[in-house]
Design a protein around this nucleic acid. Structure first.
Lengths: 127, 127, 127, 127
DNA sequence: GTGGTCTAGACCACA
DNA sequence: GTGGTCTAGACCACA
């Protein structure tokens, strides 16, 4: 696992797990890897994983059962909320990038429409 | 300067300069920093900068005049082309992210509309 | 500093600081000792103090300013809330003890009245 | 058994037995565990238990019959006296705590009344 | 100087 | 086996 040295590793683990839940790659009630397992997988200290899991627990995204493991919350609103958060971030990032390139709202709107109708055959457009 | 160890540094410098040109932060006919200057600024080897400038020259984005320096091409289509390339990439990244979160084209379209009408303040504030 | 080995040290530090705030021994906006200072004073590891301070921050009891220190919140309701929490605990503990000794509500009420009128000259009563 | 290292263990055993008698958990005329038994149970030296029993005997709380064992006194006033001692201590501790939190006699009186009327469930549930 | 993050590793509590 | 707490100590970021 490669981590961005600019941001705390434990926060990157938090974001990674949030993303997996938002993408339905980890379902509600599923068990996350144990702290030790994930620490080995990601090549970090178990304490760092615990910090990430603690943060997820504080945010009510997981529940921890001592001696049993850490599980994705069974809150029906949870996945939806995470999806929305990540969608808003993607939306934000996209608009910031487009604005920085000097595109107006109208132009962005037009490009989106074109993209949606023409599909993903954008290779021609790029070259 | 922090570089991603996964990709060649010279390519990252190329992308960075393309982005600056696309954003009008460096204008056509402007002189780029000398290879030595940029090498010091970015804390890389001058050969790495030279390789980046060579690549930009091969792509007709800059011209190097011996003894004078390296300049952004005065090709009127250049900036536009770079803008489009980066816009397409942003568009692609955005759609890939939204699709991975399970959003349909209709939902994406709706979110964009909402963002354009309601979220202008947010957006303006951030750009 | 002596800690009860049955409870986490960091929680005991949390309770201790809460008690000091409830007793007006530390006033709102006051700076707490630095993590290193308190660690030396209490003869524990700085990480343990940080954990306590983090918990207090999560409970909005203190605010931490990086590079400056940790301060008691300036929330006017805070001290009152802590006082009430500790008063309720004292009340609970007292009633549990009296009930375990077989005293009825009426008897407890009577003892309290007597205590309040006769003052604290309870030494005679004790022997 | 966990003992507070700050006070003599035998005194803590004395207090523990007094509390059990005050709570009717050990009745007058009942036989206490043998010194050896209790020593094993509490993981202390038999001499320590003997010292505790000796203290209880000096206070007329138990009587030891050679070759038969140690028995709670059949003095009708004994249990009552112990109850009162412990009640006074609880009362004292409670008032000291409430005073340290800045509560006046009137406020304490009011809280007790409220607790007795509203908090009966809570209290019952806990005892 | 002050808090924030991380590693390495020990030992405990719950199941 | 799984999470929880703690120590010792390093190094970084902010001011």
């Amino acid at each position: 696992m490669k981590f961005d040295p600019e941001r705390p590793i434990y926060m990157q683990i938090v974001d990674l797990i949030k993303k997996k839940i938002a993408r339905n790659e980890i379902l509600p009630m599923n068990k996350l890897p144990s702290q030790r397992e994930l620490a080995v997988l990601m090549n970090v200290n178990p304490n760092t994983v615990q910090r990430a899991y603690k943060e997820l627990e504080d945010e009510k995204i997981v529940v921890t059962l001592r001696g049993q493991g850490t599980f994705v919350s069974d809150n029906p609103a949870l996945v939806k909320k995470l999806k929305n958060e990540l969608a808003n971030k993607a939306l934000d990032d996209f608009f910031i990038e487009m604005k920085s390139l000097g595109f107006s709202n109208a132009e962005i709107s037009h490009l989106i429409s074109k993209f949606l109708t023409e599909g993903i055959d954008d290779n021609a457009a790029k070259s």
